[in-house]
């Protein structure tokens, strides 16, 4: 596809703009920003990847992964900002999941150790891990707030902090991982996964595209479950102090005393 044909595709940006204007939906500004940002960001990534692939140097791969983890941490951190030490907890989780998945993939020679494989797969793993940690933190925070009575009851009866928060923790882990598991049950029936569609359009053999898609899906199962469990087990101890008292997390915007 040439840039000329791609520019014709801008028709698909103009259609929502016209509709928004006519029906006064007020979406024009955001639509234009979204279109411009995606053009700039994706082209920049495209040229960056081309450079990294051509350079064939491990340093660039490391650099890209560090950048991804930094951006994911920055994004997820805002959701869990009331939890003490959330930044390093997220970094540890993302680094762990990246090391775990890549050592299995590379160690067992499932994928070759080249930038072409490592970078896109890392992007999907870290991106999904980020979304999962946001889902988990949202759910866990509300579970903790809604079930303070139960937590306090178990503490008063002489339970440990882990026992006092166990049910809320498990519910939040389950709730945050269910969408990943459920969506895999219907995959391929209604819509083809984006990565697989992209490969097929770009001319790849559909069966080979499916093989890679399956690999990614399995990786995402591990990512989802490991992320929720890790963020959960790293976060819950900050709800209690050394006297096993329930200290609660400050709400966002609440002053520290």
């Amino acid at each position: 596809m040439s840039y000329l044909t791609l520019s014709i595709a801008l028709i698909f940006v103009i259609i929502p703009l016209v509709l928004s204007k006519t029906l006064r939906l007020g979406l024009e500004k955001d639509t234009i920003i979204a279109a411009i940002r995606s053009i700039i960001q994706l082209l920049a990534v495209g040229y960056l990847l081309q450079y990294v692939f051509d350079a064939e140097h491990m340093v660039y791969i490391w650099l890209m992964i560090v950048l991804m983890i930094g951006a994911a941490t920055q994004n997820a951190r805002r959701k869990g900002s009331t939890i003490p030490g959330i930044t390093w907890k997220l970094i540890v989780t993302f680094v762990f999941i990246e090391v775990l998945t890549q050592s299995i993939l590379l160690g067992l020679s499932i994928t070759p150790a080249t930038a072409q494989y490592i970078i896109p797969i890392s992007g999907m793993i870290i991106g999904n891990s980020m979304v999962l940690s946001i889902l988990f933190l949202n759910r866990f925070t509300s579970e903790v707030e809604d079930h303070q009575d139960e937590t306090e009851l178990i503490l008063t009866l002489g339970g440990t902090p882990k026992q006092a928060i166990h049910d809320q923790l498990i519910r939040a882990i389950k709730a945050s991982t269910i969408p990943t598991i459920e969506s895999q049950k219907t995959i391929g029936l209604v819509q083809l996964p984006g990565m697989m569609s992209g490969q097929i359009i770009a001319g790849a053999d559909p069966v080979r595209a499916v093989q890679f898609q399956l690999l990614i899906l399995f990786l995402l199962l591990t990512t989802a479950v490991v992320t929720s469990i890790m963020v959960g087990y790293l976060s819950y101890p900050t709800l209690f102090n050394e006297r096993m008292q329930f200290v609660r997390w400050k709400r966002r915007g609440e002053r520290s005393q």
Binding site: E152, L153, G158, T160, M244
Partner: peptide, 30 residues
């Protein structure tokens, strides 16, 4: 020790929070 203290000094609150399950499960909790 916090746990020793909480077993020594029991507390019952106005809201009488119950865990999910039957009477036996609630009595078994401690």
């Amino acid at each position: 020790e916090p746990i020793e203290l909480r077993r020594h000094v029991g507390i019952a609150l106005q809201q009488a929070t119950m865990i999910r399950g039957d009477v036996m499960e609630n009595l078994n909790l401690p």
